[in-house]
């Protein structure tokens, strides 16, 4: 009976990493079996975890869709240069030609007076009102897209000033402004969703922790006996941690399912709305990477909740503590 060495007597043992792996795998599956013996309470807990995780997941997916929409709008949006109404079309076209050589501009589109009028008619529907006018009130227009899709505000403004100062330019307007505001709004919204997500994550932690606490109560006898015959703290803790892990993972899976169902349900009316605006925008569910992240989040929260419950219980119930 030497205390210096870790191994006891009698019989072969697996090499430590193998025995460890075997025991973990065994506990993982054993815990799953145990949970499936009481399907209803297990599913109830998983459902609570699932709903709590589904809420921020759905909101985050919607925010990401809106951000994607904002990104789509931004492409091709830049500065609108309204030229002097009296500027002849050929001079205006030469100005546009000069702008095409600017390295800080990605695209330049020139609309002569007639084209500007056609564009407005098409977009506004004021065809009849324009018919009543004798002459074309529209100036020639140059639309430019900056090479930098998201310039810093001061640099964007500097470029606008340079464009406005060009001879023949009456007014240079920064079209990106409202897209940037939209994106700023989305950033706030995303933060809000994360905050709600953190709160609900905390709720998951406590729900799992409480369920595990009850389970510990049910298995008090088993904990005591295994301790009496030499189980380590890790051995006692492990089945409960894996139980929390399963609650989290299955809850995460349910959350993913709920999210997909909701997105599928919302997709047709969103697609319809997008078509009315002439867009082919489609609502997208979360991808496999996000689903994996969701499952991992569930697993970590479930594990953590179990850890809180088991840690507290073990400290309290150990007579030698």
């Amino acid at each position: 009976m030497k205390h210096a060495t870790g191994t006891g007597h009698g019989g072969r043992r697996l090499t430590p990493p193998l025995a460890w792996l075997h025991h973990h795998l065994h506990t993982l599956l054993d815990t799953l079996g145990r949970l499936s013996h009481t399907p209803l309470p297990t599913l109830m807990t998983c459902a609570v975890v699932g709903v709590a995780l589904a809420l921020p997941t759905v909101m985050l997916t919607l925010v990401h869709n809106l951000q994607r929409l904002g990104g789509a709008w931004q492409a091709g949006v830049g500065y609108t240069l309204f030229l002097d109404p009296g500027l002849p079309d050929d001079k205006a076209a030469r100005l546009a030609e000069r702008l095409r050589h600017w390295p800080e501009l990605a695209a330049v589109r020139f609309l002569d007076r007639a084209a500007a009028r056609r564009d407005f008619e098409r977009l506004s529907g004021f065809h009849d009102a324009l018919e009543a006018l004798d002459e074309n009130p529209f100036p020639p227009v140059i639309l430019v897209t900056p090479a930098d899709p998201d310039p810093a505000p001061e640099r964007g403004e500097a470029l606008r000033r340079r464009l406005a100062a060009l001879p023949g330019v009456d007014l240079a307007q920064f079209d990106l402004q409202w897209v940037r505001r939209f994106r700023a709004l989305m950033a706030i919204l995303e933060r809000g969703v994360w905050a709600v997500g953190c709160l609900l994550g905390l709720a998951v932690l406590f729900v799992v922790g409480n369920t595990i606490r009850l389970e510990i109560g049910n298995r008090r006898e088993e904990i005591e006996v295994t301790r009496l015959i030499g189980a380590t703290e890790g051995f006692v803790r492990r089945p409960f941690l894996y139980m929390g892990f399963w609650y989290g993972v299955v809850g995460g899976l349910l959350a993913g399912l709920l999210e997909e169902v909701l997105i599928l349900w919302l997709a047709p009316p969103v697609a319809h709305l997008a078509r009315l605006y002439g867009s082919d925008f489609r609502l997208q569910g979360m991808g496999p990477a996000a689903l994996l992240a969701l499952l991992a989040t569930g697993a970590v929260l479930g594990w953590g909740g179990a850890w809180l419950a088991v840690g507290r219980h073990l400290r309290r119930s150990d007579p030698l503590a």
Partner: peptide, 13 residues
């Protein structure tokens, strides 16, 4: 079997 499981004995044994 419990003490053997706790001690990490070879499951085949």
């Amino acid at each position: 079997a419990l003490p053997l499981v706790i001690a990490g004995a070879d499951p085949r044994e």
